[in-house]
Design a protein around this nucleic acid. Structure first.
Lengths: 340, 340
DNA sequence: TTGTATGCGTTATCAT
DNA sequence: ATGATAACGCATACAA
């Protein structure tokens, strides 16, 4: 293994000079810098991570805690994980993957051992049990998802309320007056999942403003459940012409059921999905959908922890931050003017 | 921060005793062990990762290199990543996530810096450019996927040949005589992707043994492409009653097209998919499918690197290993006896 | 069974 | 602009 001392010897300077050349933390003469850099390349020197972490009290690692099972569509989770990793690299950081089966202990472990300088939590719940642990340890963290009390924390999430409002606006603009909102399973609302409630609230408020009649129905996302839900909707409100679906599993069944009930999309019924673009493009007709900027979720989370880590390193109090990312509505083939 | 010295003082023993209690590398009296363990808990001691890595010359981290874009279905990649992480934890290891945009440099970097003790490569190609780098550095690694020359390496992959053979056997057993194999896009075969070729070979060999007539057609996985492929198959071999599909994207279209061409599954045509269970269950009818044990892929890869790391740590030459995991055929609703 | 002492490779402080 | 040197916290070879 090539060490700093080897490089120093080879370049004819002291070890500290090599260290400073590499870190750029003090000014170095052109000549010295050149010689050192050349020695680094010639010898193939790579700073030892452990030694660096020990001396600098910074591991240059952030931990990313991924849920084992979650409401999040898996490809989206992967996309977030990858965007986190790439963003972290831009800051000279690597990403440690922690699965949530370790629960609170995992976060405690990596932070207390100095393995990670900071933590990014995915799929944060409203009253997430890991949050008190973070607070207690003073661990620098960024949460993807919005807990009920974000004070003292950095959080980033989609602006689900805005997403809901976009759906209402779009259907209202097209002249629809009777809308059905097909949401997640009852359990999701019962445990007050933030994203579900915020979407619904955003939709409801805007729908009321725009004078829409609407119905919210929970749906488990299976074919049977969707069939039952749709049947009830059409029984209660036969004049429904607009559908908003937030449950990925219900999308396919809904399209099939509308078709087999003799309604063509978008002539007889319009469907707006709250889902990733990837999914929206898969169906036929391709779905008008409201989508959040997934990659930014990861990028912002990284910026947040990085900010907190450097602030804490300087002995400053890290800034809290709450970033809600604006979703985008993409019009595709599943929505059109209301019939008549 | 609580250090080993703090614990030692608190327990009234020397630092090395604490270290040995924790590592279990020498026998300790009941009494001492008890006192030390209590002090550890009372003080909330967590060994510093950097110091440990520096002193022991082992980081207790393995790097997992994930492809940015790959032929692998994303949820499966995630499942592998998670199974790797959980298996690693069982060995006291953590997992560093490396995206493949760093290419060869990423592997070089984490290995040369001692950040990771070993590397797990996902989605390995036949002549993967990262392999020479591993060899050159003497980096301990396990490859998920099978390169063309696995000598000196540890590899684990699905036994795709066996998977292909299972498909042939199942359809032959049901009395089908004319089979069409709908594969990946032509590009996949042109670049000799190992999994595609091995599956095809396994299928072909077994089909010949069983006296089946068969046809292989590549297919891009879009609706249009599948339509074209199916049309050609039915034109060339109108008596085809069995279909094997390896391209996830072609499954949905194929089922729709068979239906709209007046063939019901499985009465008129049987379909066997080579895909994850998750997907097979999604369609209607649910698909008879051949599936590999995804989680084992991760587990075995971890066992392999762990073995290599400990061997190398003892100065031994690590054993190579080539593990092919046996796939399973699950009969569902998409296959039945050949018509007549 | 336990303790002492040294070194791991950097960073950063204190000199010059 | 550069050097010498003391931590950093732990593991382990050597002693007892």
């Amino acid at each position: 293994m090539v060490t700093l001392a080897d490089v120093a010897r080879h370049a004819g300077v002291s070890a500290s000079t090599v260290s400073y050349v590499l870190s750029g933390k003090r000014s170095i003469s052109q000549e010295t810098r050149r010689r050192v850099e050349q020695s680094v390349v010639e010898l193939g020197y790579h700073p030892n991570a452990g030694a660096r972490a020990l001396a600098a009290r910074r591991s240059h690692i952030v931990a990313l805690v991924v849920p084992l099972r979650s409401d999040v569509y898996v490809p989206i989770m992967m996309e977030i994980a990858i965007s986190v990793t790439m963003a972290a690299r831009q800051h000279g950081y690597d990403v440690l993957l922690i699965t949530n089966d370790e629960g609170v202990d995992g976060v405690r472990r990596v932070a207390a051992s100095g393995l990670a300088d900071g933590v990014i939590l995915m799929d944060v719940e409203l009253d997430d049990e890991r949050i008190p642990a973070l607070r207690a340890q003073g661990t620098q963290a960024s949460l993807i998802g919005l807990p009920d009390n974000p004070e003292g924390l950095s959080c980033v999430d989609h602006d689900f309320a805005a997403a809901g409002a976009l759906c209402a606006d779009h259907l209202a603009d097209l002249g629809h007056r009777e809308i059905a909102f097909i949401g997640y399973g009852a359990g999701v609302y019962r445990r007050h999942a933030g994203y579900a409630e915020r979407t619904l609230t955003g939709f409801r408020d805007r729908a009321e403003q725009r004078g829409l009649r609407f119905l919210h129905r929970s749906c488990e996302g299976t074919f049977e459940s969707t069939a039952g839900t749709l049947a009830r909707i059409l029984a209660d409100r036969p004049d429904t012409t607009g559908f908003v679906v937030q449950n990925e599993g219900a999308i396919g069944p809904l399209l099939n059921l509308l078709r087999s009930s003799g309604r063509t999309v978008p002539e007889d019924a319009s469907v707006v999905a709250l889902c990733p673009e990837q999914l929206a493009e898969q169906y036929s007709p391709r779905l008008t959908a409201v989508t959040g900027p997934t990659k930014q979720l990861g990028r912002v989370a990284v910026e947040q922890v990085m900010g907190r880590i450097t602030a804490a390193g300087r002995g400053e109090r890290p800034n809290d931050g709450l970033v809600l990312l604006t979703p985008v509505l993409t019009v595709r083939e599943s929505t059109g003017p209301a019939p008549h």
